[in-house]
Design a protein around this nucleic acid. Sequence first.
DNA 1: CCACTTGGTAAACACCGTTCACTAAACTGG
DNA 2: CCAGTTTAGTGAACGGTGTTTACCAAGTGG
Lengths: 246, 246
Amino acid sequence: MTQATRRERLRAETERDIRRQARALLVNHGREAVTLRAIAREVGITAPALYRYYDSREDLLRHLCDDICHDLEAELYAALAPLGEDAGHEQVYAVCRGFRRWALAHPQEFSLVFASPENVIGSVGPEDLLKVGDQFGKVFLEVASRLIAKHDHPHGEEVAEPPEVLHNDLRAFQQVMIRTVTARGVQVDEESLHLGAIFHILQAWVRLYGHVALEVFGRFPLAVSDPEPMFDAMLASLLVPMGIEE
Amino acid sequence: MTQATRRERLRAETERDIRRQARALLVNHGREAVTLRAIAREVGITAPALYRYYDSREDLLRHLCDDICHDLEAELYAALAPLGEDAGHEQVYAVCRGFRRWALAHPQEFSLVFASPENVIGSVGPEDLLKVGDQFGKVFLEVASRLIAKHDHPHGEEVAEPPEVLHNDLRAFQQVMIRTVTARGVQVDEESLHLGAIFHILQAWVRLYGHVALEVFGRFPLAVSDPEPMFDAMLASLLVPMGIEE
DNA sequence: CCACTTGGTAAACACCGTTCACTAAACTGG
DNA sequence: CCAGTTTAGTGAACGGTGTTTACCAAGTGG
């Protein structure tokens, strides 16, 4: 039986509706408004019925986080599509700017994912190291890795060796990144994507993500009428020393 | 009548107890556990009685945020006390490290403040610009401003002019910082603490705060067995170009 | 056809933030 | 001292939350 039964189709449809309504509640009213009763009301069922689809409210929210990350990923790849495969520099800038733009346009979604203690659905094995934390960084890490591996510091700048104690962690992550980039058709290896480069990319992501998070959560210590130049200045001071110019 | 009445003393004592118990609940069980009924139970009153002291649960949480920020401030100043007034460089490093150490030791408190939409108690006037966002950055901003103003780039490095559109915002903030630093006994003016320096310090804070936030919220995209060298590397790449060496 | 699975309901439980009316104790001022 | 006022606390109530359980009906597959 490869054909889905009517029941299976109905179930899938209901699940989609549940997720759609939950998202709408989140976007329009915030995390507190995403109650099981509110979702059930919108879907036209009762709250206990939701336990046929999810183990708990937290489980449902986890799935919502997953959806959100996939949406961001899709949007970032859509922003990259007009750029050519050789426009590595532009791609990195586009991803950074796209990430910030998306985060500011989706503050409730961003906040939910950022502040969720565990976003991972299912078990985390050695194959899933990239799923630690959240998936916000996936596209940036891929695009930056690909660019760095292909050009290997066009400025010939020497990258500082990462701290010794991080080598094991970075090596595991390096393997994940190599696999991820390779899976998209670009051959990279441990020489082109060495530990120094990995560490550098990682720090870049932390800085970008941190900046955007502070902006979305309103944590700048002053009221900035136009925060974009601050972001641009940060981006320049982040990427230019890496040899990535616009 | 300058002497507090018995009633006033009892009220102050109850308020302290409310805040103490609320904090304990937060620290031990997280934000969701800080319910009015739970607090009331611990204090030995009923939940409606809490409305004699606070306008709402949100109001209570806001006061909690205020307490938390004051605690951080006190702890950072305690960490600075052994250092001399002339140990500006060491002070900045001490504040940065102290901030991270405190945040990691107090994740629930850090998270509450970080994720709270509005931490400001009472109205915000022109005198309170430093109270925008939250008070986590207060000590760092003071210490860094004092150092920069006193030494004015020991490396003689030329600081890039901040983006034009930010000048008004930065000027207002500059006035606040000048007043704050001056109030602590160090004379600074708009020349020693010029807009470029202000912008630089601001960006440094955003970077530090962002890094720590990601660490506390578990947002690094890889499992780091020892995150401290990452922090140290970030600190070095942040402060050394500013002429602040350890 | 029938046993099993699945989707949904109603009732119930323990809990939540908040309001309101009332009581009693403390305070104030003549 | 005492009447009037203020304040702190209570109990009841309201509308809401996440979750569990037993039951019923529809769907599925042998």
